[in-house]
Simulated assay, not measured.
Amino acid sequence: MPWIKPVELVGEQVILKPLDLTQVEALVDAVRDGELWKLWYTRIPAPEQMSAEIQRRLALQQSGSMLPFYIEDRSTGQALGMTSFMNIEPLHRRVEIGSTWYRQSVQRTLVNTESKQLLLAHAFEQLNCIAVEFRTSSFNVRSQAAILRLGAKLDGILRSHQVVAGDILRDTYVYSIVKHEWPAVRQNLNWLISKPRG
Rank of each mutant, 00 (worst) to 15 (best):
H92C: 05
S75C: 01
M50C: 04
G81N: 01
A79R: 00
L67N: 06
R56P: 01
R57N: 15
V111T: 15
A79Q: 10
Q61Y: 01
Q78I: 08
E53V: 01
S99N: 12
V95L: 13
L91H: 12
L67P: 14
I44C: 07
R108G: 03
E89T: 05
H92K: 03
P45H: 14
P47M: 06
G98Q: 03
S84I: 11
G77K: 04
V111P: 14
R57L: 13
F69Q: 05
D73T: 05
Q62K: 10
S75P: 00
W101H: 02
N87K: 14
Q61H: 09
A46W: 07
R56T: 14
I71G: 00
R57H: 15
P45Q: 08
V106T: 08
L58P: 03
R57F: 15
M86F: 07
R108D: 06
G81E: 03
A52H: 07
S99V: 05
F69V: 00
S105W: 02
Y70K: 04
M66Y: 02
P47G: 07
S99F: 03
E96W: 01
T76L: 03
E48C: 00
T109H: 15
R74P: 00
S99P: 04
I44N: 07
G77M: 12
N87A: 15
T100C: 06
N87E: 13
L91N: 06
E89M: 14
E96H: 04
G98R: 09
V111E: 14
R93L: 15
S105H: 05
L80Q: 11
L58A: 03
L60P: 00
R56D: 09
A52Q: 13
G98E: 07
S105R: 05
Q49S: 12
T42K: 06
F69I: 06
R74N: 07
Q62E: 12
L67G: 10
L58E: 05
E53G: 04
H92E: 06
P90N: 08
R43C: 05
L110D: 12
M86R: 07
S51R: 14
T42W: 01
G81S: 10
I54A: 05
S63P: 00
T109S: 15
M86D: 08
E96M: 01
T100E: 09
F69S: 11
G64D: 06
Q49I: 03
A59K: 06
P90G: 04
Q62W: 01
L110G: 12
Q61F: 10
Q107G: 08
T83F: 08
A46F: 08
R108H: 15
R56V: 02
N112H: 02
G77Y: 12
H92P: 09
Q104N: 14
S51L: 12
R57D: 13
W101R: 02
V95A: 07
P68H: 09
S51N: 10
E48A: 11
T42G: 00
R93Y: 09
P90M: 12
T76Q: 01
I71M: 03
L67W: 13
L110E: 11
R57M: 14
E72G: 01
Q61V: 02
R103L: 02
N87H: 14
R94L: 11
Q62F: 04
V95F: 02
R57E: 15
L110W: 11
V106K: 12
L60I: 10
M86G: 10
L67F: 07
Q62H: 15
S84P: 13
P68S: 11
L58D: 04
P90S: 13
D73A: 07
S65V: 13
M66G: 00
D73H: 09
